[in-house]
Computed example of a mutant assay.
Amino acid sequence: MATSNLEASSTDVSQFNHTPFYCEENVYLLCKKLCANGVADAQGSDLFVVFIANEKKQIPLWHQKASNRADGIILWDYHVICIQRKRDGDSHLVWDLDSSLPFPSPLATYVSETIRPSFQLFSEYQRFFRVVHAPIFLRCFASDRRHMRDSAGNWIAEPPAYESIVAEGKCIRKP
């Protein structure tokens, strides 16, 4: 696969649509753009969407732009990133539009700096990872943004300017 201009200048995060606090929609659009521009396989077969969450809705991640701390730590209710398996099979890249690390980051760097598995966490902060193959995610993802409203119906964070994302295909939902 030839290196595209997007891949060559991949440190320029501004090439990607980003709305703070809408990580799953950001990753959806990121995957679409990586596929369209030839950085990823056209169907996204080399991309994986990773949901990071826990039951308490408190997951610590370091090197996040939304943090006010020097170490970039923040407690997200959940977070979504994209991992790309490169053609050589040995390298993987993490695409996280909310990260202050290089964009994209090698998987090993991202894990050690952002996830910090060697850092002892209290049990309520343990993270769970759900990995979804991007072709399934792109076909089945939908967001009505209900989770971004408070009990009075006000926005918790200003929504993206574009319309809510509607699933492209038929998807089986678990109850």
Rank of each mutant, 00 (worst) to 15 (best):
A8Q: 14
H147D: 05
T3G: 06
A134T: 06
Q120W: 02
E168L: 13
E7R: 05
Q15L: 10
N17G: 05
D90S: 13
I172M: 11
N26E: 07
S100R: 13
Q43I: 06
L97V: 00
R139M: 02
T3N: 06
W155E: 10
D46I: 06
E7T: 01
E158A: 15
A8V: 12
G169W: 09
Q120R: 15
I59T: 12
K32F: 00
N17P: 01
P106A: 11
S123N: 14
C31L: 01
R130P: 04
H18Q: 14
V50D: 02
S67P: 03
T109R: 09
T11G: 14
A8R: 15
K65V: 09
S143M: 04
L47H: 10
Q84Y: 05
I83R: 08
L93K: 13
L138Q: 02
L93Q: 10
D150Q: 04
L47P: 03
Y125C: 12
F16E: 11
F103S: 05
S123Y: 12
L61F: 02
F21P: 02
S123H: 13
N26P: 08
T11K: 03
N68S: 11
K32L: 09
D12A: 13
D88K: 05
D90M: 12
S45T: 07
F141V: 09
F119C: 14
E168S: 12
L47R: 00
A66W: 02
Y78A: 09
K56C: 10
D96Q: 06
N37R: 11
M148E: 06
I165G: 11
M148Y: 08
C23E: 06
P160D: 01
A134R: 09
